[in-house]
Design a protein around this nucleic acid. Structure first.
Length: 476
RNA sequence: GGCGCUAUCGUCUAGCCUGAUCUAGGACGCUGCCCUCUCAAGGCAGAAACACGGGUUUAAAUCCCGUUAGCGCUACCA
């Protein structure tokens, strides 16, 4: 049974990069009939915030990534929030110390900082020299008396390691080139990421760890730690990182790439999933517009790319538009209304619902809707009235149109074609000179949706009013 | 600095493992044309890439080595 996990730290709103890791885990698990587990890594007391934890769950749910085990839903191997698992970690740390695989280290943070600084100016690798391992009893007592609280460090005994990465293949490390004994419990008593991630992956019976490439170099530490605790390491797969449009690394501080921002801008979650999946994965053929079921059926870790990619807002916007086209008219209206509701626009619901289908095939995201919905407003400024309305020809045309509209007043969905059929013989103008005065007097703008489509929705009575309003310009 | 990962159009990518089918395919964006009352949308066309240098081979985008560049790790962040 495949068990994967997504383990974010609640130190900010989750973004594209985080959620792609979550998506790939989810897809990998679901294809193999496995379980997707959510675990909250909040061992960083300073930066973790409960509101971020809440937000992260909301965002994940909005994306359609439901976890089988985790906060809220529970599960066999809980709790799933690390700050509630401190006793478990403490037990493991105590055992490692008892077995001589870790030790209390009385070297202060300031001392290690100095060591690093010295190494830097002497151009040596800034690696902890494990001095705390061999402190004498007297030295330790002296430091204790001085009020120094120890960290706990894990002893690196066998530094040569080979990792069989699911995405990158074989990667070998020599930890001696990289780090010294590393901290698994801070002086304040909190366990570190390296410790908790190993304990939890083992206890939660995680079989496959799919995470960002930023953890690739940490993996040998984790394999060692797992081994020391008597656990079998999971299979690892390291995903390349996503960068911003200019190639800059993504950061939790970048508002524009947070899932919340996309939600607010009116993007579709299935489009986001589709786009994000394409960043570092492809189905192997030319298909790009993939529905959620297609994604689930097609996803395959072996087709995941090893090189990093840049987020391209334009392509995402385009793809979202494609997903909008895929929606049925009813779904489009429902979802658009859900988006529009909180905005409190001053139009009656029925009118909004009636006009919305007009825009379905030519917007890319819901954010563009409020602007388009302005056709529902009866009061507006005219664009270039001197050109399209305040001319003798336009005056004649609009007067004819106004009179003609009365004939359609009784119809619920009047036909624009029939209207034109009757207007054309009466009009002295054609082409642009015919349509633009109508367009501008009815909507105020030179550009906008097809008149054919707005005509039946707005209705003859209302258009008559707008026509008269335009005609009134001549009286001024 | 050390260690690791990566390298195909501006961007996302297919092709690489299993060398010849690559005159390198698709998509976004860009340009032009068509459709059209306008703007979009849509359709068609075009410009645009194998980072560099060495090997191996009859043959290299594809295999090997090196260089360069980008990124990651090198924390009492995760």
């Amino acid at each position: 049974m495949i068990r994967v996990r997504f383990a974010p730290s609640p130190t900010g709103y989750i973004h594209l990069g985080n959620v792609r890791t979550a998506l790939f885990n989810y897809l990998y698990a679901k294809r193999g009939g496995g379980k997707f587990i959510l675990r909250v890594e909040d061992t960083d007391r300073e930066r973790s915030k409960p509101e971020y934890r809440q937000a992260l769950m909301e965002d994940l749910l909005w994306m359609g990534l439901r976890w089988d085990e985790g906060p809220e839903v529970g599960g066999e191997f809980g709790p799933y929030v690390q700050s509630e698992r401190l006793a478990i970690y403490e037990e493991h740390i105590a055992r490692l110390i008892r077995e001589g695989k870790a030790y209390e280290c009385y070297v202060t943070e300031q001392e290690t900082e100095e060591m690093k600084y010295l190494a830097k100016i002497e151009k040596r690798p800034p690696r902890f020299d494990n001095r705390g391992r061999s402190f004498s009893r007297a030295e330790i007592d002296k430091r204790k008396a001085a009020g120094i609280k120890p960290t706990v460090r894990f002893k690196i005994e066998s530094p040569l390691l080979t990792l069989h990465d699911m995405i990158r293949g074989e990667v070998t490390f020599n930890l001696d080139d990289m780090v010294g004994d590393f901290v698994i419990r801070r002086a304040d008593g909190m366990p570190t990421f390296h410790l908790v991630v190993c304990v939890d992956d083992a206890l939660m019976k995680i079989t496959h760890v799919i995470r960002g490439e930023d953890h690739l170099s940490n993996t040998p530490k984790h394999m060692l730690l797992l081994g020391a605790m008597g656990y079998e390491p999971p299979a690892y797969g390291h995903l390349s990182l996503i960068n911003g449009p200019g190639g800059e690394p993504l950061s939790k501080r970048m508002e524009s790439i947070s899932i919340r921002a996309f939600r607010k801008a009116g993007f579709l979650p299935e489009a986001l999933c589709n786009y994000i999946a394409l960043l570092g994965w492809s189905p192997g053929d030319d298909r790009e517009i993939l529905t959620w079921p297609e994604l689930q059926a097609l996803f395959d870790l072996s087709r995941v790319s090893r090189s990093s990619s840049n987020y391209d807002p334009e392509k995402f916007s385009w793809l979202n538009g494609q997903h909008l086209r895929l929606l049925s008219e009813g779904d489009f209206v429902r979802r658009a209304v859900t988006f529009l509701k909180p905005l409190g626009l001053p139009y009656p619901d029925e009118e909004v619902a009636a006009i919305l289908p007009v825009f379905k095939d030519n917007v890319e995201h819901f954010d563009q809707l409020p602007e388009r919905l302005k056709v529902l407003a009866d009061e507006f400024e005219y664009e270039k009235p001197e050109l399209w309305i305040r001319t003798p020809a336009a005056k004649g045309l609009l007067e004819k149109a106004s009179a003609l509209l009365d004939e359609f007043a009784a119809e619920r969905m009047p036909s624009y074609e029939k209207f034109l059929e009757k207007l054309k013989p009466l009009a002295a103008v054609k082409g642009k000179d015919l349509f633009m005065p109508l367009r501008v007097s009815w909507t105020g703008r030179e550009h906008g949706p097809e008149l054919k489509r707005i005509f039946p929705v707005l209705g003859a009575a209302r258009l008559k009013k707008r026509t008269l309003r335009a005609l009134a310009l001549h009286a001024l």
